[in-house]
Amino acid sequence: MITLKMTLRRMLSERRRSNNKLSRALSSSQIHHASRTTWSPPLVSLDLLDDCSSTFTHSHAAPIQKCTNDNARIIDGRSAAEEIKSSIAIEVSRMKESIGKVPGLAVILVGRGQDSLAYVRNKIMACHEVGFKFSIAELPENCTEEEVCDALSNYNKDASIHGILVQLPLPQGREPLFIPCTAKGCIELLLRSDVEIVGKRAVVIGRSNIVGLPTFLLLQRHHATVSIVHAYSENPEIIAREADILVAAAGVPNLVRGSWLKPGAVVLDVGINPIEDPESEHGYRLIGDVCFKEAVRIASAVTPVPGGVGPMTVAMLLLNTLEAAKRALHFP
Rank of each mutant, 00 (worst) to 15 (best):
residue 158 D to E: 15
residue 229 V to A: 07
residue 9 R to M: 13
residue 245 I to Q: 04
residue 287 I to A: 06
residue 279 E to N: 14
residue 312 M to D: 05
residue 85 K to D: 12
residue 202 A to K: 07
residue 169 P to N: 11
residue 320 N to S: 14
residue 157 K to C: 12
residue 209 N to A: 11
residue 330 H to R: 10
residue 49 L to G: 04
residue 78 R to T: 14
residue 50 D to W: 06
residue 62 A to Q: 10
residue 270 V to C: 15
residue 41 P to F: 09
residue 321 T to Q: 03
residue 22 L to K: 03
residue 69 N to C: 11
residue 280 S to G: 03
residue 33 H to Q: 07
residue 318 L to A: 01
residue 50 D to L: 02
residue 98 S to E: 09
residue 147 E to G: 01
residue 32 H to I: 08
residue 173 G to P: 15
residue 261 L to T: 05
residue 284 Y to Q: 03
residue 305 V to G: 04
residue 232 Y to C: 06
residue 257 R to H: 08
residue 166 V to A: 08
residue 9 R to I: 15
residue 202 A to Q: 08
residue 155 Y to R: 04
residue 188 E to I: 00
residue 57 T to Q: 11
residue 139 L to T: 08
residue 105 L to Y: 05
residue 256 V to S: 02
residue 228 I to F: 04
residue 123 K to D: 01
residue 157 K to G: 05
residue 38 T to R: 07
residue 104 G to Y: 03
residue 278 P to L: 11
residue 279 E to L: 12
residue 78 R to G: 11
residue 133 K to M: 14
residue 274 P to V: 09
residue 264 G to Q: 06
residue 238 I to L: 14
residue 330 H to D: 15
residue 149 C to A: 14
residue 309 V to C: 03
residue 140 P to F: 05
residue 266 V to P: 12
residue 235 N to F: 09
residue 167 Q to W: 10
residue 89 A to T: 07
residue 239 I to M: 15
residue 263 P to G: 00
residue 15 R to C: 07
residue 287 I to G: 06
residue 48 L to Q: 10
residue 170 L to C: 08
residue 330 H to V: 07
residue 208 S to D: 06
residue 128 H to C: 09
residue 92 V to T: 04
residue 234 E to T: 12
residue 268 L to Y: 00
residue 171 P to T: 01
residue 288 G to D: 01
